[in-house]
């Protein structure tokens, strides 16, 4: 399985490093990491390139994580795109914040800081499987589109 292209969004460089280290230690998949230091920068990176997974902090300058997730979901609805798998990693711990992230913004999962490798192994297994499944589906669609485009090219050849 190819590495999952994963965006780590946090204004703290230490926390980005901790999330990447812990994901590596959890050994749930291979990851190809890209970092962003706020929601605005993350949105730009998401528009420029296709990602499988994103880990997003809540409280950040310029654009908060919750606003970024809402913007991503809005774009997905507008473009009829497959959903990006989004995990919120935050020091927020109240039920209200958890509900806002999961039910209102539609994040896939919510993890409170501080976290452990064991927590990642248990809590992220299904989320990572979902990211892998969506990636395989996207790859299949790309192959199918390419295969359908090939005969069409040949077909046009009759008229050339």
């Amino acid at each position: 399985m190819a590495a999952l292209k994963t965006l780590i969004v946090d204004d703290s460089g230490i926390m980005r490093k901790m999330v990447m280290n812990t994901l590596g230690e959890a050994n749930l998949a291979e990851f190809d990491f890209v970092e962003a230091e706020d929601g605005q920068s993350a949105l730009t990176k998401l528009k420029d390139s296709k990602f499988d997974l994103a880990f997003v902090d809540w409280n950040m300058p310029n654009m908060t994580g919750i606003d970024m997730i809402k913007a991503v979901r809005k774009l997905e609805r507008a473009n009829d795109d497959d959903p990006l798998v989004l995990v919120m990693i935050t020091s927020e711990k109240t039920m209200g914040k958890m509900q806002e992230a999961l039910d209102v913004a539609r994040a896939d999962h919510f993890i409170s800081k501080p976290f452990t490798t064991e927590e990642f192994q248990v809590k992220l297994k299904k989320v990572i499987e979902k990211a892998q499944m969506l990636r395989m589906r996207r790859n299949r669609v790309q192959v199918q589109v390419a295969a359908e485009a090939e005969p069409a090219k040949k077909g046009w050849g009759w008229f050339n």
């Binding site: 935050t90 020091s91 711990k93 409170s112 800081k113």
Partner: peptide, 9 residues
């Protein structure tokens, strides 16, 4: 920040 999250909860 982590402490503050615990305090708010």
């Amino acid at each position: 920040n982590v402490i503050a999250g615990d305090v708010v909860a």
